[in-house]
Design a protein around this nucleic acid. Structure first.
Lengths: 244, 244
DNA sequence: GGTTGGTATTGAGCTAAGTCAAGAATCTTC
DNA sequence: GAAGATTCTTGACTTAGCTCAATACCAACC
């Protein structure tokens, strides 16, 4: 079993960053061939995570960042009394684990929403690399800062939006991200449950479910369980705004 | 007027990082004297902001980070339709502006809550510095990551807490931060309005006001407008948890 | 291929927090 | 130090979203 994993990992190593279709998503543009080569040496492993399995847990030692290579994950923070807040859903090319740098310990947990695969970037090596290549250094700073901005948007969403607006912007955001990855922007299959969507949006699962139904009645979407089709993205966009 | 400002700034420059009481708060431990000296060269200016004035605006070009040297600030993100979400209140020694790295443009705005003063750290120079001193590089990464973790906590708060819990943890957090700065943990004057607290917590100002009154009736605090005294921090802490 | 357990939908009723509004306290400024 | 402008408090009422509960759907796995 372990032996087989080794073999698979070794094969995957050959399809490294330079030939990876997600290169643009997770790595900076404008690296020289030589620099790209060094970058490849950085990614020392791929890891497979089965649906529902955990990639890392809150409190576990931080060693590496991960980029989603296949599938999708969620990250969530836990409160002492068991309450959970999903802090993000992550798809192809997206980077996770940045919160671990702070204390050398992961500050959230990451779970696979479906069978997934991630690239592993040992952070100390990334730091070394960044020291020698300014473009890479700046890229790391940008990645961290972009995560801060993303979370600020989530705070805006959680703090100021009504349920309807939250779900509409959630769907539009997903749609956008699928589009950027070459998938259909109007038709997709959700990888997360109503409860996870609810947790992310600060709503209860029943509310999420009811809203899906309401959006469907209004002719904005088709929602059959996890299957979603956006019929009227403009209409969805118009939902976001002052109640009026 | 401008001349005078120049003189004052020049005087302040002399009380640079090496003799600044906030050194531990905003800069990494374990720099050599020489490194500290280089660090000082980095901070090229102090800036005074009067109460209510803006330090930087969303969309303005990002050039520098700022550390609070005196007073306090708030940062907030704005939604197209005018809704505002306060993303943080920042006091002595705290660093702001990290969200600007992402797009070379500020992604939130910063306003002084009282007459304040900040140290200005030009980011490109900080990057240069970080390239030569690994401890500094790691410190920058940590700062960014810590901001991510802070925002994750805010998301947890916004998404999962009841009004009562939000305000209790807000007060306890403030108390903590005052304590770390050598002020009283149990008695302080709020620098922000009920509306700003509400925006930060995802509540309306009336709700905040009512909660202050309720906490006071319950003997947990004394709240006379901006003056706050925590009578029973343990009681406040017990408010946070499942409704029971 | 039927059983089981997780997931989703929908309804009825409740409640925490919001809205609107009026008045009090405090700060600002001339 | 009086007038005006903010900010804060409190009350009465409304409502969006929650809770509880029952049923339906779907996927996984003997």
């Amino acid at each position: 079993m372990h032996g087989q994993t080794q073999i698979i990992d070794f094969q995957r190593l050959k399809t490294a960053c330079s030939s990876c279709s997600l290169q643009d998503l997770c790595m900076p543009r404008g690296l020289t061939a030589d620099e790209l080569c060094q970058l490849e040496a950085l990614v020392d492993e791929h890891r497979r995570i089965k649906r529902g399995e955990r990639l890392y847990a809150t409190g576990s030692p931080f060693e590496a960042l991960y980029t989603v290579r296949l599938g999708s994950l969620k990250t969530s923070v836990l409160f002492e009394d068991g309450r959970e807040q999903v802090t993000g859903f992550h798809m192809l090319g997206e980077l996770i684990g940045l919160d671990g740098i702070s204390t050398d310990t992961h500050n959230c947990s990451a779970y696979a929403l479906e069978d997934s695969e991630v690239c592993l970037l040992p952070f100390s090596r990334l730091e070394e690399f960044a020291r020698t290549i300014p473009a890479m250094q700046h890229h790391v700073h940008r990645l961290l800062s972009t995560e801060i901005v993303r979370e600020q948007h989530n705070m805006l969403m959680l703090g100021t939006m009504r349920a309807e607006e939250k779900l509409a912007s959630f769907l539009l955001d997903l749609s956008d991200r699928y589009l950027k990855r070459g998938y259909s922007a109007s038709e997709f299959v959700l990888r997360m449950t109503r409860e996870e969507i609810g947790s992310f949006l600060g709503l209860k699962l029943e509310t999420v479910s009811r809203l899906f139904s309401r959006f469907q009645e209004a002719g904005l979407i088709i929602a059959q369980q996890k299957y979603i089709k956006l019929l009227d993205p403009t209409g969805l966009r118009q939902l976001i705004g002052p109640p009026d």
